[in-house]
Structures are given as C-alpha cells and as structure tokens.
Amino acid sequence: MSAPLLELRGLSGGYPPVSVFRGVDMTVGNNEAVGLFGPNGHGKTTLLKTVAGLIDPRDGDIFFAGERLNTEGKMRPRTSRHLNYDLFRRRRISAESVVRQGLIYVMQGNLLFPEMTVEEVLDIAPQAARGRGGAAQMRDLVDAVFPRLRERWHSKIRFLSGGERQMVSIAAGLLALPRLLILDEPTLGLSPKLRIELCEAIAKIRAENVPLIVVDQNVEFLTSLVDRLYLFDHGAITREIDGSAMPSHEEVMTMMFGEAH
C-alpha cells in the first residue's frame, strides 16, 4: 500500500487531566472508507475531535497526506497553579489548518447555526476550500444526494428536523471539498425512514470515491459501506477487521464483549 492518507501514531488525548484514549494507531488509505465501531462513552468522538483539531492531543502524531498536523512532542503538563497558564499555552493543533488541509469532521448531533438559513450555511461552508478546484462538481453532488435541502433552502436551521440538520451538516462538509470526510454517528437519533434515506445518501457519497471515516452503531450499515473496520473499546482500538472478512452484528458483539454479552 502507498503512503496512507491519514495516519495516527500512538495518539493519546482527552480533556486534561482526564485521559480518554491512548495509544491509538489507525490508518486510512487513499480512496478508502474506514468504519469505527464501539460502545458509547468510550472516547470515539473525543478521538475524532482531536484529529479534527478541536482538542489538543497529549501524545502521539497525526499525519495527513504526508504532513504532520500537530506540534511535535508531548503536551507539557500544567506546571504552575498560580500563573495564567493559558496565556502561554500554545495550541498543539489548530482546527483551522486541519480543515484547510481538507480533513473535514462532521460533528455528532451538530446543532450548526440555529438562526441561519440552509442557504446561508451552505454559502459559508466552501470558505475552507478556498483555492482548491472542484467546487461546482461538489455542489452537483450535494444537490443529487440531498434533494430535500432545496425544499428547505430558506428555512432557519432551528426549524429543521434532526435528519435535515444532519443533511445540512454533511452537505456543508462536502462543500468544503474534503480529501477525507469524517462522519460521527450521522444517523444518531433519526427515525427509521430518515435513517435509511441518510444511509443511502452516504453510500452515494462513497460511490463518488470520497474517503471516509464513519462512526455508527449499526454494524450492518458499516460493513456494507466500509473497506475496513476498527473496533474501539475503552479508549483504544482493540481490533482491526479487513474487508474480506466483515463480521455480522452478533460476531462483532462477541468480539467486543465475549460470549455472554
């Protein structure tokens, strides 16, 4: 395999002083879709937020398209209780530059901007992709995948349903021309009908060769979509499953929780 698109090497992090995940090694190849599956509250979102640059990593490295996204080295522990430590603290990773590189994270249950219309949100979304080509193509893809958004073009985000809001989030992510798109539980809290609609939309996006990291609680959906699956448990990756041997839901449960789950 050629050099991977995204590579995490021994990545650890969390919300200081709490450590949430540690020693995560993970790769996403060019044109690859990778799934991340694991119980709620075990740090998947924290891991992905770190990769997206919202949270400083504690240790380890994030390489994207051959470039290091984080400052080299370990996070220094807070040394003084008395000085304004924040004044001297440098962020070790910046969401702005991560997004500029084309690594787009679509947040879980994203509330977006409640008082803005769909049109306004999708107008500012491509800002991140300034100077990169392919915008018109992406707009066509968004129109093809989410025809529903055109109907709600001038509605405020506040008045949209959860599913529609998720569609706006993903559409905004696509308009930023992702070289890698991270979808964090895109189907969380949706009705079964909307869920199917959204899963189909994601499959269509995948068909356009957009590299993906997808987190979902539905093993069947994940295994039908992705090339590789990572199982994530207690803040670490416990198993990597190759595309040739995608397991069923039952098998995954057994892998994670043992026979008597």
């Binding site: 997206a52 640059g53 919202l54 969401a95 702005e96 997004v99 500029r100 787009i104 994270y105 947040m107 994203n110 509330l111 977006l112 901007f113 409640p114 008082e115 803005m116 306004e120 949100v121 107008d123 500012i124 979304a125 800002q127 991140a128 905004a172 930023a176």
Partner: peptide, 22 residues
C-alpha cells in the same frame, strides 16, 4: 460571506471552527 461568518461564530463557535474559520 464575511458577515455570515461573524454570525456563525456567534451562534456556534465549535462548528464555526470546524468550518475552517479563524
């Protein structure tokens, strides 16, 4: 677009960061 970006920051700072705004 610049004005909309300002409003975006006011409404949801984290989401605005994820859109690549400074």
């Amino acid at each position: 677009t610049a004005g909309r970006a300002l409003r975006a920051v006011a409404q949801n700072r984290e989401a605005a960061e994820l859109m690549g705004f400074n």
